[in-house]
Design a protein around this nucleic acid. Structure first.
Lengths: 231, 231
DNA sequence: TATGATTACCTTACGCGGTAAGGTGACCGA
DNA sequence: TCGGTCACCTTACCGCGTAAGGTAATCATA
């Protein structure tokens, strides 16, 4: 603790923390060098002393999220006795909780051209679990692909209203409803059958915890069956 | 055919066609109003007569891709005799061929806040196939979510090098390789076991036709099993 | 045939974005 | 004491999307 720290000096870490806070609060579009600097009580160009540029800032954001996932997974503790399904399930669900705190993360990750080093380590752990469970490398490799974005705690929905903060509330008149029922008979029937009474606003469009776990288990079941038949 | 068309007039369609061509050639980042206009032999502001703005242009790009998918699916012809699995499989694979022609499309779709109307119609067809096959609306609904991006012909990979045209060729020294083997034992073992000798450059990272079909069949198998047991 | 409206495109200009270049003062080891 | 490094700032540039308004050709109508 400094005696008279008239202002705490900047650092890559402080910049990234502020950036995460800014994006959590106002969305990814609000993240500009000038605005981030202002939030830190500094001029825009000062950020360049700690980060090479905007791209590095975005990469740093992704890095932060993965560190948060890493910490969440670490908090699960040792999982020696568990079977592979439970272990992967816990991992993915832990990651999901992190993503729910940062709805902008999926979209950002998808738009980044580089893969953070942490991700490789993360995947290595998943792969280790699969191999240990008796999967061949070939099947394990395909399993990783099949999982897609589940290891990161979200099911990738193509159009995620959260991305741009768009309003989900679409106003539908009665006439439009009737037209919809005609042109989209199955969808309207499904909505009617499900009613799908709102509730938990989660990640993407309609991506609730239930959907997430359904997909997860569907894949885990299928893989387990493969494992038992083909060794 | 006009007698002396000194210059074919612009139109929303012509603009979108040029935009698709531009993005196919130079990537999504190269799509600016000025550059697109220049390609059409016109000033930037002239585009605004045919499109409200850049967002509408991007929406138009997505729309174009979906129309291409629609056309590809239509070319499959009537599928009356087929079972549901084959029908969905054909649909998804047809969509995939379109996506392979436009590698920028997945990323663009993911970043758009709105859902084109065509998509609803497309999903309605898929849903109809599922219901006809005997699925309940509940399971069919979950199946739609489980499919994720497969109906659009791509498996969503989190980090797609195609998005920003990043170079995949990572140079790895021998020392780095050794360090990797230590920190990522399973991944290096898998790569060694698979060798995975390059070949077909497709959509995302390592997303080859084989991976795509593996995931697809894994989900279809799992759903079929659900269908037989629960109904 | 004259004229006013409409169409399709252009000119100018603004604010905001990232960032290159180069300063400036505080601190620090020699 | 004094050069050097550190941490931050000032200024400026270019490219972006686009608001506001202009203009020439075309067309409908009287």
């Amino acid at each position: 603790m400094r005696a008279k720290a008239s202002r705490e000096p900047l650092s890559r870490e402080r910049v990234l923390t502020a950036a995460v806070a800014l994006v959590d609060a106002d969305g990814i579009a609000a993240l500009t060098m000038r605005r981030l600097a202002a939030n830190l009580g500094v001029e825009a160009m000062s950020l360049y002393y700690h980060l090479p540029g905007k791209d590095a800032l975005l990469d740093g954001l992704v890095e932060s999220v993965f560190q948060e996932i890493g910490a969440a997974v670490a908090r699960l503790g040792p999982q020696d006795g568990m079977d592979w399904r439970t272990r992967l399930r816990q991992r993915f669900l832990a990651a999901r909780e992190v993503m729910l705190r940062h709805p902008w993360a999926p979209g950002l990750m998808g738009s980044r051209p580089t893969i953070p080093a942490d991700v490789y380590a993360y995947y290595d752990g998943i792969l280790g679990t699969l191999i240990e469970a008796g999967f061949s490398y070939r099947i394990a490799h395909r399993a990783l692909h099949a999982f897609g974005s589940l290891p990161f705690g979200f099911a990738q929905e193509i159009f995620s209203p959260t991305a741009a903060g768009g309003n989900l509330e679409v106003e539908v008149t009665e006439a439009e409803m009737a037209a919809m029922a005609e042109s989209l008979p199955h969808l309207t029937a499904m909505v009617a059958a499900e009613i799908h009474d709102a509730g938990d606003p989660t990640l993407g469009w309609c991506d609730s915890q239930v959907e997430f776990e359904f997909t997860l288990d569907l894949l885990l079941d299928g893989l387990d069956r493969l494992r038992r038949t083909s060794v």
